[in-house]
Structure formats: structure tokens, C-alpha cells
């Protein structure tokens, strides 16, 4: 796989940059006021990086970037609890994107974006319900799904833009 022929410094730098970008997005969107009273509900815009990395580099490194971003994100924002939320949303998004990568051509990257958005929000809602033990929160599911699909479309389109414009090749393995 092309990955392994990269020199380790180059790879490290690339991954570090991606992590930094994801981290910035994550921290910035955390400053937004919550729209829904579902705790931890975030637009999940940082998944742009997950999508980009998944479709230009590969699942292994994507996972690295994802976990690093989540870990550092909770350290920098001082919120230990968002760890679980981010993990739930991010990992679910990762899993789905991983499964899809074989199927989607570049022009259909937005599909991955939407599906990722859906999974991201389902994951967050599930964690919120589990932690607060308020099953009633499930009433927000349709709202979250709609918003998740919206932001997912956005992230998917952005990811496609970046894949086209930035150096690196789109890979579907």
C-alpha cells in the first residue's frame, strides 16, 4: 500500500496536520451554543477530516487521526465527558465510512458525508440517553437525523472539494 512507502517523517507530518485541522474544527464547533437540549450534540464538522483522510490515505491512519483528535480535543477543552460523545460519534462515522469506501466514487463522496452524519448523531444520542438515563431524549432523533444529514452533506461536499484541490489521490481501495 502506498502508505508504507511514505517516509515516516512525511507521514507523521501529514497526519499531524490533519489532526490539528480536525482538532481546530472540533474545538471551534464546541463553542457554538447547543441547539437541541441533547447533551453533546455537535454538528460533527470535524468529520470532514475523517472523510478526507479515509479516501486519500486509508482506514488505519484515519483511525489514528480520529483517536488523536478526540483525545486531544477532550484534553484541550477540559471536558472529559465529551470524550464519550466524540468517541461514539466519531467511531461510528469511521466504521460506516470504512465500509463504504469501496463503493463510492469521488462524485458520491457526499453520500459518505450524509451517512457519517447520520451515524454520528445516532451515536451521540445513544450515549446521551445512556449517561443521563433519560430515554425520553429519543424524541429528538428525527430532528438530529435531519440536521445530521444536512451537515453530513456539507462535510461530504467539503471533503470532495479538498480531495480534488489538495495534492493526493482519491483512493477507493
Amino acid at each position: 500500500m502506498p502508505l508504507r512507502t511514505d517516509t515516516s517523517v512525511r507521514r507523521l507530518t501529514r497526519l499531524a496536520l490533519l489532526t490539528a485541522v480536525a482538532l481546530c474544527i472540533h474545538l471551534l464547533e464546541g463553542q457554538l451554543p447547543p441547539i437541541f437540549p441533547v447533551p453533546g450534540a455537535k454538528p460533527g464538522l470535524a468529520n470532514v477530516v475523517t472523510l478526507y483522510t479515509m479516501f486519500t490515505i486509508g482506514p488505519g491512519d484515519t483511525l489514528l487521526v480520529l483517536l488523536s483528535r478526540i483525545l486531544l480535543g477532550s484534553v484541550f477543552s477540559g471536558r472529559a465527558t465529551t470524550l464519550f460523545y466524540s468517541l461514539a460519534g466519531g467511531l461510528l462515522c469511521f466504521a460506516v465510512t470504512c465500509l463504504l469506501r469501496r463503493l463510492l466514487p469521488l462524485r458520491q463522496l457526499w453520500v459518505a458525508g450524509i451517512l457519517g452524519g447520520i451515524c454520528h448523531n445516532i451515536g451521540q444520542l445513544a450515549v446521551a440517553i445512556a449517561i443521563t438515563r433519560t430515554p425520553a431524549l429519543v424524541v429528538y432523533l428525527p430532528w438530529l437525523l435531519l440536521c445530521g444529514m444536512g451537515t453530513g452533506l456539507f462535510t461530504g461536499l467539503c471533503a470532495r472539494f479538498f480531495v480534488k484541490k489538495l495534492p493526493g489521490k482519491y483512493k477507493t481501495w
Binding site: 437540549p37 443521563t132 425520553a136
Partner: peptide, 14 residues
């Protein structure tokens, strides 16, 4: 429709 939640403390105001 707008419960207030403090996750770390497990507090839900409904």
C-alpha cells in the same frame, strides 16, 4: 420540550 442537562453531574431538569 427543552430539558436542561448537565452530563458530568448526571443532572436533568425537565
Amino acid at each position: 420540550g427543552y430539558p436542561i442537562v448537565c452530563l458530568p453531574h448526571g443532572l436533568v431538569i425537565q
